[in-house]
Design a binder for these strands. Structure first.
Lengths: 239, 239
DNA sequence: AAAGGTCCGATTGGATCCAATCTTGTATAG
DNA sequence: CTATACAAGATTGGATCCAATCGGACCTTT
Protein backbone atom coordinates (compact mmCIF):
# COMPACT_ATOMS: atom_id res chain seq x y z
CA UNK A 1 0.00 0.00 0.00
CA UNK A 2 2.96 2.30 0.42
CA UNK A 3 3.35 2.09 -3.32
CA UNK A 4 -0.11 3.54 -3.77
CA UNK A 5 -0.34 6.11 -1.03
CA UNK A 6 3.05 7.64 -1.66
CA UNK A 7 1.93 9.01 -5.01
CA UNK A 8 0.45 12.36 -4.03
CA UNK A 9 -2.26 12.83 -6.59
CA UNK A 10 -1.75 10.99 -9.89
CA UNK A 11 -2.97 7.95 -8.05
CA UNK A 12 -5.97 7.90 -10.32
CA UNK A 13 -3.71 7.75 -13.33
CA UNK A 14 -2.08 4.71 -11.82
CA UNK A 15 -5.40 2.97 -11.47
CA UNK A 16 -6.23 3.96 -15.02
CA UNK A 17 -3.06 2.33 -16.19
CA UNK A 18 -3.87 -0.83 -14.28
CA UNK A 19 -7.45 -1.12 -15.43
CA UNK A 20 -6.85 -0.27 -19.07
CA UNK A 21 -4.10 -2.87 -19.31
CA UNK A 22 -6.35 -5.85 -19.15
CA UNK A 23 -6.89 -7.49 -22.48
CA UNK A 24 -3.61 -6.74 -24.21
CA UNK A 25 -1.08 -9.07 -22.63
CA UNK A 26 -0.62 -12.81 -22.74
CA UNK A 27 0.68 -13.21 -19.21
CA UNK A 28 0.25 -11.23 -16.02
CA UNK A 29 3.94 -10.58 -15.55
CA UNK A 30 4.10 -8.88 -18.94
CA UNK A 31 1.18 -6.73 -17.90
CA UNK A 32 2.79 -5.80 -14.60
CA UNK A 33 6.16 -5.08 -16.18
CA UNK A 34 4.58 -2.85 -18.80
CA UNK A 35 2.44 -0.89 -16.36
CA UNK A 36 5.20 -0.37 -13.82
CA UNK A 37 7.53 0.65 -16.61
CA UNK A 38 5.03 3.24 -17.77
CA UNK A 39 4.41 4.40 -14.21
CA UNK A 40 8.11 4.96 -13.65
CA UNK A 41 8.42 6.77 -16.96
CA UNK A 42 5.46 9.00 -16.05
CA UNK A 43 6.92 9.87 -12.66
CA UNK A 44 4.12 8.21 -10.70
CA UNK A 45 6.75 6.05 -9.05
CA UNK A 46 9.52 8.46 -8.20
CA UNK A 47 13.26 7.74 -8.05
CA UNK A 48 14.29 6.19 -4.77
CA UNK A 49 10.75 5.14 -3.93
CA UNK A 50 10.34 1.70 -2.41
CA UNK A 51 8.12 -0.72 -4.30
CA UNK A 52 6.78 -3.46 -2.07
CA UNK A 53 5.74 -6.71 -3.66
CA UNK A 54 2.67 -6.91 -1.46
CA UNK A 55 1.54 -3.39 -2.36
CA UNK A 56 1.85 -4.01 -6.07
CA UNK A 57 0.14 -7.38 -5.71
CA UNK A 58 -2.88 -5.76 -4.06
CA UNK A 59 -2.90 -3.02 -6.66
CA UNK A 60 -3.05 -5.50 -9.54
CA UNK A 61 -5.17 -7.93 -7.53
CA UNK A 62 -2.85 -10.84 -8.22
CA UNK A 63 -0.38 -12.85 -6.19
CA UNK A 64 3.15 -11.71 -5.49
CA UNK A 65 4.70 -14.11 -7.97
CA UNK A 66 4.17 -12.28 -11.27
CA UNK A 67 5.19 -9.11 -9.44
CA UNK A 68 8.50 -10.67 -8.58
CA UNK A 69 9.11 -11.76 -12.16
CA UNK A 70 8.28 -8.31 -13.47
CA UNK A 71 10.56 -6.61 -10.95
CA UNK A 72 13.40 -8.93 -11.86
CA UNK A 73 12.98 -7.95 -15.47
CA UNK A 74 12.81 -4.23 -14.72
CA UNK A 75 15.93 -4.65 -12.62
CA UNK A 76 17.83 -6.02 -15.59
CA UNK A 77 16.49 -3.13 -17.65
CA UNK A 78 17.96 -0.71 -15.15
CA UNK A 79 14.67 0.87 -14.06
CA UNK A 80 14.57 -0.55 -10.55
CA UNK A 81 17.18 -1.75 -8.12
CA UNK A 82 16.80 -5.09 -6.37
CA UNK A 83 18.57 -5.89 -3.13
CA UNK A 84 18.31 -9.39 -1.75
CA UNK A 85 15.79 -9.64 1.09
CA UNK A 86 15.33 -5.88 1.05
CA UNK A 87 13.01 -5.33 -1.86
CA UNK A 88 12.96 -3.05 -4.87
CA UNK A 89 13.44 0.67 -5.25
CA UNK A 90 13.07 2.87 -8.31
CA UNK A 91 16.59 3.48 -9.49
CA UNK A 92 17.76 7.03 -8.98
CA UNK A 93 20.33 8.36 -11.42
CA UNK A 94 23.07 10.70 -10.38
CA UNK A 95 23.80 13.81 -12.41
CA UNK A 96 26.87 12.15 -13.84
CA UNK A 97 24.96 9.04 -14.83
CA UNK A 98 22.32 11.08 -16.63
CA UNK A 99 25.08 12.85 -18.50
CA UNK A 100 26.69 9.54 -19.45
CA UNK A 101 23.37 8.17 -20.58
CA UNK A 102 22.98 11.09 -22.97
CA UNK A 103 26.52 10.72 -24.24
CA UNK A 104 25.82 7.06 -24.99
CA UNK A 105 22.53 7.97 -26.62
CA UNK A 106 24.36 10.40 -28.89
CA UNK A 107 26.83 7.73 -29.92
CA UNK A 108 24.30 4.98 -30.57
CA UNK A 109 21.45 7.01 -32.00
CA UNK A 110 23.58 8.94 -34.48
CA UNK A 111 25.00 5.61 -35.60
CA UNK A 112 21.49 4.24 -36.05
CA UNK A 113 20.07 7.42 -37.55
CA UNK A 114 22.55 7.36 -40.43
CA UNK A 115 21.35 3.90 -41.33
CA UNK A 116 17.73 4.94 -41.07
CA UNK A 117 18.24 7.93 -43.34
CA UNK A 118 20.00 5.75 -45.88
CA UNK A 119 17.37 3.02 -45.83
CA UNK A 120 14.05 4.82 -45.55
CA UNK A 121 11.57 4.64 -48.42
CA UNK A 122 8.94 7.24 -49.35
CA UNK A 123 6.17 4.95 -48.14
CA UNK A 124 7.80 4.48 -44.75
CA UNK A 125 8.41 8.22 -44.48
CA UNK A 126 4.76 8.94 -45.17
CA UNK A 127 3.72 6.43 -42.56
CA UNK A 128 5.98 8.06 -39.97
CA UNK A 129 4.69 11.50 -40.86
CA UNK A 130 1.15 10.34 -40.14
CA UNK A 131 2.22 8.94 -36.77
CA UNK A 132 4.03 12.16 -35.92
CA UNK A 133 0.97 14.20 -36.84
CA UNK A 134 -1.15 12.19 -34.44
CA UNK A 135 1.22 12.68 -31.53
CA UNK A 136 0.48 16.29 -30.50
CA UNK A 137 -3.22 15.71 -30.07
CA UNK A 138 -2.54 12.86 -27.70
CA UNK A 139 -0.32 15.02 -25.53
CA UNK A 140 -1.17 15.07 -21.82
CA UNK A 141 -3.32 12.08 -22.43
CA UNK A 142 -2.72 8.72 -20.95
CA UNK A 143 -1.35 6.92 -23.99
CA UNK A 144 1.02 9.75 -24.85
CA UNK A 145 4.20 8.19 -23.58
CA UNK A 146 3.46 4.87 -25.16
CA UNK A 147 2.60 6.47 -28.49
CA UNK A 148 5.89 8.33 -28.52
CA UNK A 149 7.76 5.14 -27.67
CA UNK A 150 6.00 3.42 -30.52
CA UNK A 151 6.93 6.20 -32.93
CA UNK A 152 10.63 6.03 -32.16
CA UNK A 153 10.62 2.26 -32.21
CA UNK A 154 9.17 2.07 -35.71
CA UNK A 155 11.41 4.95 -36.75
CA UNK A 156 14.71 3.36 -35.74
CA UNK A 157 13.55 -0.07 -36.87
CA UNK A 158 14.04 1.18 -40.40
CA UNK A 159 17.52 0.13 -41.43
CA UNK A 160 18.59 -1.22 -38.04
CA UNK A 161 18.59 -4.62 -36.38
CA UNK A 162 16.28 -5.34 -33.42
CA UNK A 163 19.34 -5.48 -31.17
CA UNK A 164 20.28 -1.89 -31.92
CA UNK A 165 16.70 -0.70 -31.59
CA UNK A 166 16.30 -2.39 -28.22
CA UNK A 167 19.41 -0.69 -26.88
CA UNK A 168 18.09 2.68 -27.99
CA UNK A 169 14.71 2.07 -26.44
CA UNK A 170 16.30 0.98 -23.20
CA UNK A 171 18.37 4.14 -22.92
CA UNK A 172 15.31 6.23 -23.73
CA UNK A 173 13.28 4.43 -21.07
CA UNK A 174 15.90 5.14 -18.44
CA UNK A 175 15.98 8.89 -18.99
CA UNK A 176 12.29 9.32 -19.79
CA UNK A 177 11.24 9.91 -16.20
CA UNK A 178 13.56 12.89 -15.99
CA UNK A 179 12.28 14.52 -19.18
CA UNK A 180 8.56 14.53 -18.46
CA UNK A 181 8.71 18.20 -17.46
CA UNK A 182 10.14 19.41 -20.74
CA UNK A 183 7.12 18.47 -22.83
CA UNK A 184 6.78 22.01 -24.23
CA UNK A 185 10.20 21.77 -25.83
CA UNK A 186 9.72 18.28 -27.17
CA UNK A 187 6.33 18.72 -28.74
CA UNK A 188 7.58 19.28 -32.28
CA UNK A 189 10.83 17.38 -31.93
CA UNK A 190 9.47 14.62 -34.12
CA UNK A 191 8.65 17.04 -36.92
CA UNK A 192 12.12 18.56 -36.75
CA UNK A 193 13.63 15.10 -36.89
CA UNK A 194 11.56 14.09 -39.89
CA UNK A 195 12.47 17.35 -41.65
CA UNK A 196 16.14 16.45 -41.43
CA UNK A 197 15.48 12.89 -42.50
CA UNK A 198 13.59 14.14 -45.53
CA UNK A 199 16.69 15.91 -46.82
CA UNK A 200 18.39 12.54 -47.11
CA UNK A 201 21.78 13.61 -45.75
CA UNK A 202 22.95 11.25 -42.97
CA UNK A 203 25.65 13.62 -41.70
CA UNK A 204 23.27 16.53 -41.46
CA UNK A 205 20.64 14.49 -39.64
CA UNK A 206 23.22 13.03 -37.25
CA UNK A 207 24.64 16.47 -36.49
CA UNK A 208 21.20 17.83 -35.72
CA UNK A 209 20.39 14.90 -33.45
CA UNK A 210 23.62 15.31 -31.55
CA UNK A 211 23.07 18.98 -30.90
CA UNK A 212 19.46 18.35 -29.96
CA UNK A 213 20.36 15.66 -27.43
CA UNK A 214 23.12 17.82 -26.02
CA UNK A 215 20.65 20.65 -25.58
CA UNK A 216 18.16 18.47 -23.76
CA UNK A 217 20.90 17.02 -21.58
CA UNK A 218 22.07 20.50 -20.68
CA UNK A 219 18.65 21.66 -19.65
CA UNK A 220 18.16 18.48 -17.67
CA UNK A 221 21.42 18.91 -15.83
CA UNK A 222 20.55 22.50 -15.02
CA UNK A 223 17.19 21.48 -13.65
CA UNK A 224 18.49 18.63 -11.52
CA UNK A 225 21.28 20.81 -10.20
CA UNK A 226 19.01 23.61 -9.06
CA UNK A 227 16.53 21.18 -7.58
CA UNK A 228 19.16 19.38 -5.57
CA UNK A 229 20.50 22.65 -4.16
CA UNK A 230 16.99 23.66 -3.19
CA UNK A 231 16.44 20.45 -1.29
CA UNK A 232 19.74 20.92 0.41
CA UNK A 233 23.06 19.37 -0.55
CA UNK A 234 22.89 15.62 -0.50
CA UNK A 235 25.03 12.91 -2.06
CA UNK A 236 23.82 11.80 -5.52
CA UNK A 237 21.40 9.20 -4.23
CA UNK A 238 21.53 7.54 -0.86
CA UNK A 239 21.04 3.83 -1.07
CA UNK B 1 17.16 -33.40 -18.61
CA UNK B 2 17.29 -32.19 -22.16
CA UNK B 3 19.36 -29.29 -20.95
CA UNK B 4 21.98 -31.69 -19.64
CA UNK B 5 22.08 -34.41 -22.25
CA UNK B 6 22.19 -32.08 -25.21
CA UNK B 7 25.68 -30.95 -24.32
CA UNK B 8 27.83 -33.55 -26.04
CA UNK B 9 30.86 -33.74 -23.80
CA UNK B 10 31.59 -30.62 -21.73
CA UNK B 11 28.83 -31.87 -19.50
CA UNK B 12 31.37 -32.36 -16.76
CA UNK B 13 32.35 -28.72 -16.99
CA UNK B 14 28.75 -27.83 -16.44
CA UNK B 15 28.60 -29.87 -13.27
CA UNK B 16 31.84 -28.28 -12.16
CA UNK B 17 30.28 -24.87 -12.63
CA UNK B 18 27.26 -25.90 -10.62
CA UNK B 19 29.13 -27.49 -7.74
CA UNK B 20 31.78 -24.79 -7.39
CA UNK B 21 29.16 -22.07 -7.25
CA UNK B 22 27.88 -22.93 -3.85
CA UNK B 23 29.08 -20.57 -1.18
CA UNK B 24 29.43 -17.33 -3.11
CA UNK B 25 25.90 -16.09 -3.68
CA UNK B 26 23.28 -14.75 -1.35
CA UNK B 27 20.28 -16.19 -3.16
CA UNK B 28 19.77 -19.21 -5.38
CA UNK B 29 18.51 -17.19 -8.33
CA UNK B 30 21.73 -15.20 -8.38
CA UNK B 31 23.65 -18.46 -8.41
CA UNK B 32 21.57 -19.87 -11.25
CA UNK B 33 21.78 -16.68 -13.28
CA UNK B 34 25.53 -16.53 -12.89
CA UNK B 35 26.14 -20.17 -13.77
CA UNK B 36 23.82 -20.16 -16.78
CA UNK B 37 25.40 -16.92 -17.93
CA UNK B 38 28.82 -18.50 -17.74
CA UNK B 39 27.61 -21.67 -19.42
CA UNK B 40 26.24 -19.68 -22.34
CA UNK B 41 29.43 -17.68 -22.57
CA UNK B 42 31.49 -20.89 -22.58
CA UNK B 43 29.38 -22.43 -25.32
CA UNK B 44 28.08 -25.26 -23.14
CA UNK B 45 24.59 -24.05 -23.91
CA UNK B 46 24.65 -23.35 -27.60
CA UNK B 47 22.66 -20.73 -29.51
CA UNK B 48 19.14 -21.89 -30.29
CA UNK B 49 19.22 -24.61 -27.65
CA UNK B 50 16.08 -25.05 -25.59
CA UNK B 51 16.47 -24.63 -21.83
CA UNK B 52 13.72 -26.37 -19.90
CA UNK B 53 12.92 -25.14 -16.42
CA UNK B 54 12.56 -28.67 -15.14
CA UNK B 55 15.93 -29.74 -16.53
CA UNK B 56 17.76 -26.83 -14.96
CA UNK B 57 15.89 -27.36 -11.70
CA UNK B 58 17.08 -30.96 -11.51
CA UNK B 59 20.60 -29.90 -12.45
CA UNK B 60 20.80 -27.40 -9.61
CA UNK B 61 18.70 -29.57 -7.31
CA UNK B 62 16.30 -26.75 -6.52
CA UNK B 63 12.72 -25.93 -7.42
CA UNK B 64 11.72 -24.33 -10.70
CA UNK B 65 11.09 -20.94 -9.13
CA UNK B 66 14.61 -19.53 -8.86
CA UNK B 67 15.18 -20.92 -12.36
CA UNK B 68 12.32 -18.86 -13.67
CA UNK B 69 13.59 -15.69 -12.02
CA UNK B 70 17.07 -16.25 -13.39
CA UNK B 71 15.77 -16.89 -16.91
CA UNK B 72 13.69 -13.73 -16.76
CA UNK B 73 16.79 -11.78 -15.86
CA UNK B 74 18.90 -13.38 -18.60
CA UNK B 75 16.11 -12.60 -21.04
CA UNK B 76 16.32 -8.91 -20.19
CA UNK B 77 20.09 -9.15 -20.58
CA UNK B 78 19.62 -10.50 -24.08
CA UNK B 79 21.24 -13.89 -23.49
CA UNK B 80 18.09 -15.99 -23.73
CA UNK B 81 14.77 -15.58 -25.43
CA UNK B 82 11.55 -16.18 -23.51
CA UNK B 83 8.28 -17.03 -25.25
CA UNK B 84 5.14 -17.24 -23.17
CA UNK B 85 4.12 -20.83 -22.45
CA UNK B 86 6.86 -22.10 -24.73
CA UNK B 87 9.96 -21.80 -22.61
CA UNK B 88 13.42 -20.36 -23.08
CA UNK B 89 16.01 -20.73 -25.80
CA UNK B 90 19.57 -19.43 -25.96
CA UNK B 91 19.41 -16.36 -28.17
CA UNK B 92 21.11 -16.81 -31.50
CA UNK B 93 22.61 -13.73 -33.09
CA UNK B 94 22.54 -13.15 -36.82
CA UNK B 95 25.68 -12.08 -38.61
CA UNK B 96 24.32 -8.58 -38.89
CA UNK B 97 23.52 -8.39 -35.20
CA UNK B 98 27.02 -9.50 -34.27
CA UNK B 99 28.38 -6.79 -36.52
CA UNK B 100 26.13 -4.19 -34.92
CA UNK B 101 27.13 -5.32 -31.47
CA UNK B 102 30.76 -4.72 -32.33
CA UNK B 103 30.00 -1.33 -33.84
CA UNK B 104 28.23 -0.36 -30.63
CA UNK B 105 31.10 -1.74 -28.57
CA UNK B 106 33.51 0.45 -30.52
CA UNK B 107 31.41 3.52 -29.88
CA UNK B 108 30.87 2.95 -26.17
CA UNK B 109 34.23 1.46 -25.25
CA UNK B 110 36.31 4.11 -26.97
CA UNK B 111 34.21 6.70 -25.16
CA UNK B 112 34.87 4.96 -21.86
CA UNK B 113 38.51 4.20 -22.58
CA UNK B 114 39.33 7.88 -23.03
CA UNK B 115 38.00 8.56 -19.57
CA UNK B 116 39.90 5.64 -18.10
CA UNK B 117 43.17 6.76 -19.63
CA UNK B 118 42.62 10.26 -18.30
CA UNK B 119 41.70 9.13 -14.81
CA UNK B 120 44.00 6.22 -14.06
CA UNK B 121 46.60 6.53 -11.31
CA UNK B 122 49.94 4.68 -11.09
CA UNK B 123 48.63 2.54 -8.25
CA UNK B 124 45.59 1.49 -10.21
CA UNK B 125 47.73 0.75 -13.23
CA UNK B 126 50.01 -1.46 -11.18
CA UNK B 127 47.03 -3.31 -9.79
CA UNK B 128 45.69 -3.96 -13.27
CA UNK B 129 49.09 -5.11 -14.49
CA UNK B 130 49.14 -7.73 -11.76
CA UNK B 131 45.67 -8.93 -12.70
CA UNK B 132 46.67 -9.09 -16.37
CA UNK B 133 49.77 -11.10 -15.51
CA UNK B 134 47.68 -13.67 -13.70
CA UNK B 135 45.31 -14.13 -16.61
CA UNK B 136 47.41 -16.28 -19.01
CA UNK B 137 48.11 -18.97 -16.45
CA UNK B 138 44.41 -19.38 -15.79
CA UNK B 139 43.70 -19.87 -19.48
CA UNK B 140 41.74 -23.00 -20.36
CA UNK B 141 40.87 -23.30 -16.73
CA UNK B 142 37.43 -23.03 -15.37
CA UNK B 143 37.60 -19.57 -13.86
CA UNK B 144 39.18 -18.07 -16.97
CA UNK B 145 36.13 -16.37 -18.38
CA UNK B 146 35.12 -14.94 -15.05
CA UNK B 147 38.63 -13.69 -14.34
CA UNK B 148 38.72 -11.89 -17.67
CA UNK B 149 35.32 -10.38 -16.98
CA UNK B 150 36.56 -9.18 -13.63
CA UNK B 151 39.64 -7.62 -15.22
CA UNK B 152 37.67 -5.58 -17.72
CA UNK B 153 35.13 -4.58 -15.11
CA UNK B 154 37.74 -3.13 -12.79
CA UNK B 155 39.53 -1.62 -15.75
CA UNK B 156 36.58 0.34 -17.11
CA UNK B 157 35.36 1.21 -13.63
CA UNK B 158 38.27 3.63 -13.48
CA UNK B 159 36.92 6.99 -14.56
CA UNK B 160 33.46 5.73 -15.56
CA UNK B 161 30.10 5.50 -13.86
CA UNK B 162 28.60 2.08 -13.03
CA UNK B 163 25.97 2.68 -15.68
CA UNK B 164 28.53 2.90 -18.46
CA UNK B 165 30.46 -0.08 -17.15
CA UNK B 166 27.34 -2.21 -16.99
CA UNK B 167 26.50 -1.43 -20.61
CA UNK B 168 29.98 -2.45 -21.67
CA UNK B 169 29.86 -5.67 -19.69
CA UNK B 170 26.48 -6.52 -21.15
CA UNK B 171 27.69 -6.10 -24.71
CA UNK B 172 30.75 -8.18 -23.92
CA UNK B 173 28.62 -10.93 -22.41
CA UNK B 174 26.47 -11.11 -25.51
CA UNK B 175 29.35 -11.64 -27.92
CA UNK B 176 31.51 -13.74 -25.62
CA UNK B 177 30.05 -17.05 -26.70
CA UNK B 178 31.09 -16.38 -30.27
CA UNK B 179 34.67 -15.49 -29.40
CA UNK B 180 35.61 -18.54 -27.32
CA UNK B 181 37.45 -20.05 -30.27
CA UNK B 182 39.83 -17.13 -30.78
CA UNK B 183 41.60 -17.52 -27.46
CA UNK B 184 45.02 -17.70 -29.13
CA UNK B 185 44.58 -14.22 -30.54
CA UNK B 186 43.23 -12.73 -27.37
CA UNK B 187 45.77 -14.11 -24.95
CA UNK B 188 47.91 -10.98 -24.80
CA UNK B 189 45.20 -8.49 -25.68
CA UNK B 190 45.20 -7.22 -22.11
CA UNK B 191 48.92 -6.50 -22.23
CA UNK B 192 48.56 -4.64 -25.51
CA UNK B 193 45.75 -2.63 -24.03
CA UNK B 194 47.71 -1.74 -20.93
CA UNK B 195 50.70 -0.74 -23.07
CA UNK B 196 48.58 1.85 -24.85
CA UNK B 197 47.05 3.04 -21.62
CA UNK B 198 50.51 3.50 -20.13
CA UNK B 199 51.39 6.06 -22.81
CA UNK B 200 48.64 8.29 -21.47
CA UNK B 201 47.26 9.39 -24.85
CA UNK B 202 43.47 8.89 -25.00
CA UNK B 203 43.28 9.26 -28.77
CA UNK B 204 46.00 6.73 -29.38
CA UNK B 205 44.45 4.19 -27.01
CA UNK B 206 41.00 4.71 -28.52
CA UNK B 207 42.34 4.27 -32.05
CA UNK B 208 44.07 1.04 -31.10
CA UNK B 209 40.94 -0.31 -29.42
CA UNK B 210 38.83 0.51 -32.45
CA UNK B 211 41.13 -1.26 -34.87
CA UNK B 212 41.43 -4.21 -32.51
CA UNK B 213 37.69 -4.64 -32.16
CA UNK B 214 37.25 -4.25 -35.90
CA UNK B 215 39.82 -6.97 -36.45
CA UNK B 216 38.11 -9.37 -34.07
CA UNK B 217 34.73 -8.60 -35.61
CA UNK B 218 36.09 -9.29 -39.06
CA UNK B 219 37.50 -12.66 -38.09
CA UNK B 220 34.28 -13.51 -36.33
CA UNK B 221 32.19 -12.67 -39.37
CA UNK B 222 34.46 -14.74 -41.58
CA UNK B 223 34.15 -17.72 -39.27
CA UNK B 224 30.39 -17.55 -38.90
CA UNK B 225 29.99 -17.12 -42.64
CA UNK B 226 32.02 -20.20 -43.54
CA UNK B 227 30.38 -22.26 -40.85
CA UNK B 228 26.89 -21.38 -42.03
CA UNK B 229 27.75 -22.30 -45.61
CA UNK B 230 29.17 -25.60 -44.42
CA UNK B 231 26.03 -26.45 -42.52
CA UNK B 232 23.99 -25.50 -45.52
CA UNK B 233 22.18 -22.25 -46.13
CA UNK B 234 19.73 -21.50 -43.37
CA UNK B 235 17.93 -18.33 -42.32
CA UNK B 236 19.76 -16.38 -39.57
CA UNK B 237 18.12 -18.21 -36.69
CA UNK B 238 14.81 -20.05 -36.78
CA UNK B 239 12.59 -19.25 -33.81
C1' DA C 1 -5.08 -39.70 -49.64
C1' DA C 2 -5.01 -35.07 -47.88
C1' DA C 3 -6.91 -31.66 -44.89
C1' DG C 4 -9.10 -30.39 -40.88
C1' DG C 5 -10.52 -31.00 -36.09
C1' DT C 6 -10.18 -33.00 -31.50
C1' DC C 7 -8.09 -35.01 -27.65
C1' DC C 8 -4.20 -35.89 -24.61
C1' DG C 9 0.47 -35.35 -22.76
C1' DA C 10 4.00 -32.12 -21.58
C1' DT C 11 5.56 -27.71 -20.15
C1' DT C 12 4.98 -23.30 -18.42
C1' DG C 13 2.36 -19.51 -15.67
C1' DG C 14 0.15 -18.40 -11.22
C1' DA C 15 -1.41 -19.10 -6.30
C1' DT C 16 -0.67 -20.53 -1.70
C1' DC C 17 2.23 -21.87 1.97
C1' DC C 18 6.57 -22.11 4.62
C1' DA C 19 11.40 -20.64 5.72
C1' DA C 20 15.05 -17.28 5.89
C1' DT C 21 16.59 -12.65 6.29
C1' DC C 22 16.28 -7.84 7.38
C1' DT C 23 14.46 -3.98 10.08
C1' DT C 24 12.86 -1.74 14.01
C1' DG C 25 11.83 -1.14 18.68
C1' DT C 26 13.04 -2.16 23.36
C1' DA C 27 15.61 -3.32 27.18
C1' DT C 28 19.87 -3.71 29.49
C1' DA C 29 24.62 -2.84 30.44
C1' DG C 30 28.38 0.39 30.45
C1' DC D 1 22.73 9.14 28.48
C1' DT D 2 24.66 6.30 24.88
C1' DA D 3 25.55 2.14 22.69
C1' DT D 4 25.01 -2.65 22.08
C1' DA D 5 22.38 -6.90 22.21
C1' DC D 6 18.22 -9.15 21.78
C1' DA D 7 13.60 -10.07 20.13
C1' DA D 8 9.36 -9.44 17.59
C1' DG D 9 7.27 -7.96 13.37
C1' DA D 10 7.41 -7.39 8.55
C1' DT D 11 9.04 -8.45 4.07
C1' DT D 12 11.23 -11.17 0.82
C1' DG D 13 13.14 -15.82 -1.11
C1' DG D 14 11.95 -20.66 -2.10
C1' DA D 15 9.00 -24.96 -2.38
C1' DT D 16 4.86 -27.26 -3.52
C1' DC D 17 0.53 -27.51 -5.75
C1' DC D 18 -2.97 -26.32 -9.22
C1' DA D 19 -4.55 -24.16 -13.62
C1' DA D 20 -3.83 -22.54 -18.30
C1' DT D 21 -1.69 -22.95 -22.64
C1' DC D 22 0.93 -25.14 -26.35
C1' DG D 23 2.43 -29.05 -29.29
C1' DG D 24 1.73 -33.33 -31.42
C1' DA D 25 -0.75 -37.64 -32.39
C1' DC D 26 -4.79 -39.76 -33.78
C1' DC D 27 -9.11 -39.84 -35.86
C1' DT D 28 -12.74 -38.31 -38.80
C1' DT D 29 -14.47 -36.32 -43.01
C1' DT D 30 -14.46 -35.00 -47.74
Amino acid sequence: MTAVDSAPNPDTTLHQLVTTSHGQFRTIEERVASVVRSAIAAGIFQPGEHLSQEGLAQLFEVSRMPIRSALRQLDAEGLVELHAHRGATVRALSLEEISDLYEMRILIETFALRKTVAAITPDQFENLAILAAELPERADQEGWLEARRSFYRTFYSIGNTPRVVSTIMQFRAEVNRYTTGLADVRLHTHDDLLDRVKLGDPDLAAAWLESHLREVAGELKRRVAQRSEKEGPQPPAGR
